[in-house]
């Protein structure tokens, strides 16, 4: 009886001791030194964990900032003051990045887009892409069931009367959550100073594109020719604004576009 108790106490105590010594040793030997700047920066970040910087949460982003693998400008939510403080901690200069906002590349609302049928089912954009792709005939445009509205943490995107997603450029923080929420990839992030866009994503041939939507870009190249190739570029039956080359002095070919696919967004109230 006594020996059993003795053995039990000794063996369990021994095991416990063995593991505690092992862990204590491992703690010393395998210690990973963490930069104190990481916690400091993590506190300054918005801690919304929105993931728009491309990392898994703000803490992870802070680690990569200190490791020099990322730049503070990749955080679009963080204010300029915080960015400067963080840059001072890191000992680098900030070039405060331009504020970016979401832009919806579609004008195919109820009155413009051809309807291909009635959709009755789960009213989310993601669900409809699994079945028929919604009610509109265009395979590249906004579906209009508002997955982006649900995703937006800042109440900056809404479905308008036309059944189209529209961005409130004043409220948009540029986190990019809506970009990943949209199953069609209709939403893109652009600097707020960019106002001219070809609001279409349709790369079908002109005949098909025109049959599905009144405002589809048909790749006719009129805009490209009007500006002699500076500022507009047509690839894959779709014109795109080249914002690097585009300047305000250029005459806007907005009115020249036969389908009115070129749009000027919110210039009056911003700049």
């Amino acid at each position: 009886m006594f020996t059993t108790i003795l053995y039990a106490v000794l063996s369990m105590g021994g095991l416990g001791l063995l593991f505690s010594v092992l862990i204590a040793l491992a703690n010393k030997k395998l210690a990973v030194e963490e930069d104190p700047r990481i916690t400091e920066i993590a506190e300054l970040l918005p801690n919304a964990n929105c993931g728009s910087c491309g990392y898994a949460g703000c803490a992870n982003f802070a680690e990569n900032l200190v490791g020099g693998k990322s730049q503070i400008n990749n955080c679009s939510v963080c204010g300029n003051d915080a960015k400067e403080t963080i840059a001072r901690i890191l000992g680098v200069d900030v070039q405060t990045g331009e504020h970016r906002v979401a832009v919806v590349f579609c004008q195919g609302g109820k009155s413009n887009a051809t309807k291909k049928g009635d959709y009755r089912g789960v009213k989310t954009c993601l669900a409809t892409t699994f079945v028929s792709g919604g009610e509109r005939a265009c395979n590249y445009g906004c579906i209009g069931y508002g997955d982006c509205v649900t995703a937006c943490p800042f109440d900056a995107i809404h479905i308008n009367d036309e059944g189209l997603a529209t961005v409130d450029r004043k409220k948009c923080t540029g986190c990019g959550t809506c970009v990943s929420a949209c199953p069609r990839g209709v939403i893109e992030m652009h600097p707020i100073s960019h106002h001219v866009f070809v609001q279409c994503k349709n790369i079908d041939n002109p005949k098909v594109a025109r049959s599905v939507c009144k405002h589809a870009c048909i790749g006719c190249m009129i805009c490209e020719r009007a500006v002699q190739g500076v500022g507009f570029k047509v690839t894959n039956n779709l014109a795109k604004v080249d914002h690097v080359q585009y300047t305000k002095e250029l005459v806007l070919p907005t009115d020249k576009c036969p389908t009115k696919a070129i749009v000027i967004l919110g210039q009056a109230d911003e700049s």
Binding site: M12, L15, G16, F19, S20, L22, I23, A26
Partner: peptide, 10 residues
């Protein structure tokens, strides 16, 4: 239990 807890830590 002791072994598992210690092991996972290590």
């Amino acid at each position: 239990i002791l072994v598992i807890a210690g092991l996972v830590q290590l």
